[in-house]
């Protein structure tokens, strides 16, 4: 594992901790998209099906279980626990999951057919596509609230940085490993995923540089 990959994983873990902290500190779920969390839970559950059939390393298994467990916990909090349940604004979080799920499933089936993938690989491919767009509901909620809370802003920043660091990891691996397996589907999705954050990054850094409140143009 190289430094970019490790930094990417840590950025991902960090983003989840920040979201949990944000819920705990603010004692509300304002501006948090439950739909994005649900998409991420589907991403993790479909990608990490291999947990059931093989063991790679303690680090690998621990991270996978951490991602699934923490995302499930966040969803449980917002759906069923007070004060999150009553402060979560369903009407602002109106993204329809099937608009992401169905195209990703169709794309994954086509990709798997072409590449001769089996059952687990099909779901793995589906999760790669779905992860690329999983942040969309959260970005839509953010647009509607306009002013972005500090911790929510940091959460999205570290979540975006995670896939960006993975891109650096792939470049590093391609240069340093002799028999590196190039997966262009993963590359393309990684670029799309990171690009979706570009606009957010721009306003995030601008607010950090100039100070004041962090708001998005409407």
């Amino acid at each position: 594992m190289n430094i970019f990959r490790f930094a990417g994983d840590m950025s991902h873990v960090f983003s989840i901790i920040i979201l949990l902290l944000r819920l705990h500190v603010a004692k509300n779920a304002n501006g948090v998209s439950l739909k994005t969390q649900e998409l991420f839970l589907i991403v993790f559950c479909t990608r990490y099906l291999d947990l059931l059939i093989r063991f790679i390393s303690l680090y690998n298994s621990a991270m996978k279980i951490l991602y699934i467990g923490s995302t499930a916990a966040i969803i449980h909090m917002i759906r069923y626990r007070e004060p999150y349940r009553s402060t979560y604004d369903r009407s602002q979080d109106s993204f329809r999951l099937e608009f992401a799920l169905i195209p990703c499933l169709v794309l994954a089936m086509i990709t798997s057919l072409i590449r001769g993938f089996g059952f687990i690989e099909l779901f793995w491919t589906f999760s790669i596509y779905l992860e690329a767009v999983a942040i969309l509901p959260q970005l839509i909620v953010l647009q509607r609230y306009s002013v972005v809370e500090n911790l929510t802003g940091h959460y999205i920043f570290f979540l975006g940085a995670y896939r960006g660091l993975y891109i650096l990891n792939w470049i590093y691996r391609a240069y340093t490993e002799k028999h590196y397996h190039h997966d262009y589907v993963v590359y393309a999705c990684g670029f799309v995923q990171t690009a979706l954050y570009a606009d957010f990054f721009y306003y995030y850094f601008q607010s950090k540089y100039y100070g004041g409140t962090f708001s998005l143009p409407t």
């Binding site: 690998n60 590449r115 993938f117 793995w124 397996h181 997966d183």
Partner: peptide, 10 residues
């Protein structure tokens, strides 16, 4: 095309 069975990325 083979799936990268050794893939340990998250």
């Amino acid at each position: 095309e083979e799936w990268d069975k050794e893939k340990d990325e998250l």
